[in-house]
Design a protein around this nucleic acid. Structure first.
Lengths: 240, 240
DNA sequence: CGGCAGAATTGAACGCGTTCAAAGAGAGTA
DNA sequence: TACTCTCTTTGAACGCGTTCAATTCTGCCG
């Protein structure tokens, strides 16, 4: 959860929202380190203690960002996933939407990732706390496949949504370190790697590579199942 | 660099070493957050200000850890790389050495990675500040290839050391989140992925896959060259 | 109306990482 | 010895995130 206390009164909910909006605004204006909890409280018209009544820490305010971009990304994918046909076009659309969605937050994304990378942080993408979000993301990639003409008999089929999620995390990692204007290099990375992925998935069905694919798939499943934070194999038909 | 000031006198060098050793000991005893700069200074018999004279920040003390494990890893690879033959055996040996080397630091590795993940941090593996270390690592993987019987005519040849370095970073990332006893899951990951990598490299030379390999290689090189922090293509013969 | 329980709010205080003006120590020079 | 320059060391002070005992607000019951 993002907050320590879910407000029970309307007034409380309003205070909480005011603190959150102020924090997000200041983060964008001054960056994470440049924003103090005292400043957030002052500009929101409350005391510091009150901010901590609704948010357990400064990091938890950042988490609100993460959730916001995630939801924006889901929304931005709706239209392309309804219209686009073919694996490549659909994957490209989803990745493009991701980069467009997170672009405004690049300047302080370092802090976001910094806390997200900490295995103990609730922001960590592998943590139990962010499991719902991860499930939604994985389901998104399942939908990418669903509308594609990818051979569903492939051994890789059931593991592909998870693999694509990992790929997408890798792209975000690259994006974080991308200092080129308008994140052109990340755009290039996507433009080059998406067709590559499409080709590899196709090739995975060749008789020559069957054994390799099977071994890889079996290991991936085992890895997922022995993990404490399994997002599950996402069957396109079962995804919501 | 790890320090702000390189001591010019013997006494200064001694003080610096005492602070560093105390810090590393306390980090292991109490963890990163449990260790205060005041405690480090007290136990080292100096003032807080003095600690900051030699180390720009608490994070810079952590960087000493990183450098230490890196050097331990290089040393641990010497013997296997002299004796082991074949791509698979050599890569396995290097990865095994890595996991063994970093194991003692797993309990506070979260903090290490947390700061390392920040693009602005000097600890960041992609930063200019850690370029020398990255070069050494990449050269290590070049040596893995050097003693192997991998077809050097492969388009992939010159990019492989960099790719293996990225693979090795991925394994470390996995390791950070691995809560299994003795990091068994990471060991499994290596045991399964190393043979997979060997196979893929071999397959990359098949006529059928030539085009794919060439496209991938060209993009990798371009990516590396347009990057501000290029570790360079490491030719095995030129590696030291 | 009075009283009360729980939610909401306060702000002083704590411990932390970090800074900096000032003082000390030591070596070279006249 | 006295002066000076640079390297080293000091510790009080600053601003930060965070905590918590105390207070105020709010709706509800008798």
């Amino acid at each position: 959860m993002t907050d320590r206390t879910t407000p029970t009164t309307d007034k409380g909910a309003e205070t909480r929202a005011r603190i959150l909006e102020t924090a997000l605004r200041l983060f964008l204006e001054r960056g994470y380190d440049g924003t103090t909890m005292r400043a957030v409280a002052r500009e929101a018209g409350v005391s510091v203690g009150n901010a901590y009544y609704y948010f357990a820490s400064k990091e938890h305010l950042i988490q609100a960002f993460y959730l916001r971009t995630h939801e924006e990304h889901l929304a931005a994918c709706e239209e392309p996933l309804r219209t686009a046909r073919g694996f490549e076009a659909r994957l490209l659309a989803v990745m493009d939407a991701k980069l467009t969605t997170i672009e405004p937050y690049h300047r302080f994304s370092g802090v976001l990732f910094k806390t997200a990378a900490d295995p103990a942080s609730p922001l960590n993408p592998f943590s139990a706390e962010s499991l719902p979000t991860r499930r939604e993301s994985t389901a998104l990639f399942a939908r990418v496949l669903e509308g594609s003409r990818v051979d569903t008999s492939s051994e890789l089929w059931s593991e592909l949504p998870n693999l694509l999620w990992v790929y997408h995390m890798g792209v975000v990692l690259f994006w974080l370190h991308d200092r080129s204007p308008e994140r052109r290099r990340t755009r290039q990375l996507v433009a080059h790697t998406v067709p590559l992925i499409v080709r590899i998935v196709q090739l995975g069905n060749l008789p020559l590579l069957r054994t390799l694919t099977r071994r890889a798939t079996r290991f991936l499943r085992e890895l997922r199942e022995t993990s404490g934070v399994d997002a599950g194999a996402v069957e396109p038909s079962g995804a919501d």
